[in-house]
Simulated assay, not measured.
Amino acid sequence: MTVEKRLAELGIILPEAAAPAANYVPFVAAEGLLHISGQIPFDEDGRLIVGRLGETMDVEAGQQAARRCAIGIVAQLKAAVGDFGRVKRIVKLNVFVNSALDFTAQPEVANGASDLMVALFGEAGRHARSAVGVAVLPRGVAVEVDAIVDVR
């Protein structure tokens, strides 16, 4: 089954790949690896998903924010390679979680992004990962995710 079919089955419509908000590029290809810059979560209406896990958001809301970041990663991937058939493997996700001092469920929040990659890319979506709690993220968003992808 193709990634496009999986997206359709999941009811996901890819947004336009987000333009950089500062002095960087959305992705860089180097020696077969595509490095995708951090993506922040936008809801279906294009509004930022803001909040702090363990304070104003629970794990489930954080997982949804992480999933929306992963959708942004997939949109950037599509913009970079055009054809998802060129994706050999999702190599690594780095997931940054805007966390209250006593919040320790970053791995569970990160599963929102990881689960989507596996749902879309199957075994090729299984990846290495870091899930890190941080004091603040740009624009007050709940989660930010970047990726490294092996492409043909």
Rank of each mutant, 00 (worst) to 15 (best):
K5Y: 09
T104H: 01
F96Y: 04
L93Y: 08
G62E: 12
A70Y: 00
S130L: 07
K92G: 07
R129F: 14
D58Q: 12
R67M: 15
S114W: 01
P41Y: 04
R89N: 12
V50G: 02
P26Q: 14
V3K: 08
A119N: 06
H127Y: 06
F27M: 04
F96R: 12
A29R: 07
A17Y: 15
R86F: 09
R6L: 05
A100P: 03
V141N: 07
T2I: 03
L33Q: 02
V81E: 07
E16M: 05
R47P: 01
A113N: 15
P138Q: 02
V25M: 08
F121W: 03
V97E: 00
R68D: 00
L116G: 04
E55G: 08
K78A: 07
K92A: 12
A21K: 11
T2F: 06
H35W: 00
L7Q: 13
K88V: 03
T104E: 00
A128E: 12
E108N: 09
V118T: 07
L137G: 10
A66G: 11
L120T: 01
A75I: 07
M1C: 08
T56K: 00
E108Q: 11
V25F: 08
H127N: 10
E60Y: 10
V28W: 04
V109D: 00
D115Q: 05
A80L: 06
I148H: 02
A128C: 02
R47V: 04
S37N: 09
Q64H: 14
K88C: 01
D43V: 11
A124K: 12
F96M: 13
G11T: 06
E44V: 07
Q39M: 10
N23W: 03
D115M: 04
R67C: 13
P15E: 08
R47W: 06
L14D: 15
T2K: 09
V141Y: 13
A119Y: 00
F42T: 11
M117S: 01
R52C: 07
L116C: 06
V149A: 02
I90Q: 01
S130D: 11
G32C: 10
V136T: 14
L120N: 02
P15W: 05
V74F: 13
A100Y: 11
E4R: 15
T104M: 00
A21Y: 08
V149I: 14
E4H: 13
G46C: 10
A66P: 13
E60H: 13
L137E: 12
T2V: 05
I73Q: 05
A65Q: 07
A66C: 10
R6S: 06
D58A: 13
A128Q: 12
Q63G: 06
A142E: 09
F121I: 04
L48P: 01
F96L: 14
P138G: 07
R126I: 15
G122D: 14
